[in-house]
Simulated assay, not measured.
Amino acid sequence: MSGAQTVPSPLVVLATHNQGKLRELRELLRGQVPGLDVDTQVVDAATAGAADVLEDGITFAQNALKKARAVAEQTGLVAVADDSGLSVDILGGAPGIFSARWSGRHGDDEANLQLLLAQLADIGPTHRGAAFICAAALAVPGGGDHVELGELRGTLLTEPHGDGGFGYDPILQPDGLQESCAQISAEHKNRISHRGQAFRALLPHLVDALDQGQSAPSAH
């Protein structure tokens, strides 16, 4: 049909179904790679036809890299993945990779948060140090992997504060701030967050992979 527009082939797939994460990656990449249409060529796992990947690693980095490698192999595209959670000093780094299912039910944010607060009920403020940690991974079809880490340190509050964010955001007060992660603006959080740090560190390696043309065979 004459005049029909051709949709560019995807070049990058983010191993997630979370549209918020996809928007963040698109904004990080916007204007970084000449000719890259981030709104059509940077897609999520479902759009790329990638199956879910079992996260059975013992570190954030292992889980992120496993997801990125699996999605790159499934799709033939440059793949990006992340894994993140809360690391509490006095609990030896727990909940860690089990952050999303600390209470036994995956994704039950309120139950996870309340269980953690109960476990730390007798712990004073000087021993409530914790950090959000994120590992962001890049995998290129045919070989070429990279992982970057981001960390947002703070102190765990004794009760939730704020309605923004998700997960443990209402009880982590970042160092240097008087508000929890659930009380600061989304823009502020993105500037200081563990995910923002990890993805910004990964960005040059992702740009290099795209510049070198290491993408799907169908890409032009």
Rank of each mutant, 00 (worst) to 15 (best):
A45S: 15
A68H: 02
Q214G: 01
R105A: 15
F132S: 04
L14Y: 13
N18C: 06
D122A: 12
G150P: 11
P8K: 11
G57F: 02
E151M: 14
L65I: 09
G85E: 06
V53N: 01
G144L: 12
Q214L: 15
Q74M: 05
L203E: 13
V38K: 06
N190W: 00
E148T: 15
C181T: 01
R191Y: 00
Q173T: 09
D108S: 01
T40K: 12
F166H: 13
T126I: 09
R128S: 08
A94V: 00
H127F: 12
A50K: 00
D109L: 01
A51L: 15
D37F: 05
A68G: 03
P34D: 06
N63K: 09
A48Q: 03
L117G: 04
Q19Y: 09
D52Q: 10
T158E: 07
R69T: 11
E55S: 04
S2G: 14
L152Q: 09
A61H: 09
H146C: 15
Q5R: 14
G164R: 03
V78T: 09
A46N: 06
D211H: 15
F199T: 07
D208W: 07
P174K: 01
Q62Y: 05
R23E: 10
N190S: 12
T6S: 14
A81S: 07
I184L: 14
A64Q: 09
G107L: 04
S103K: 12
V71Q: 00
S103I: 09
P10A: 02
A46L: 13
Q197I: 04
I133C: 12
I97H: 05
S99D: 08
L203C: 14
L28R: 11
H220T: 11
A4P: 04
K67F: 06
R69S: 06
G104F: 08
G167S: 05
Q197L: 09
L28H: 10
A131Q: 11
L11H: 07
Q41L: 08
D39N: 15
Q114L: 12
T47S: 10
Q41Y: 11
L11V: 09
V207W: 12
G164Y: 00
T158W: 01
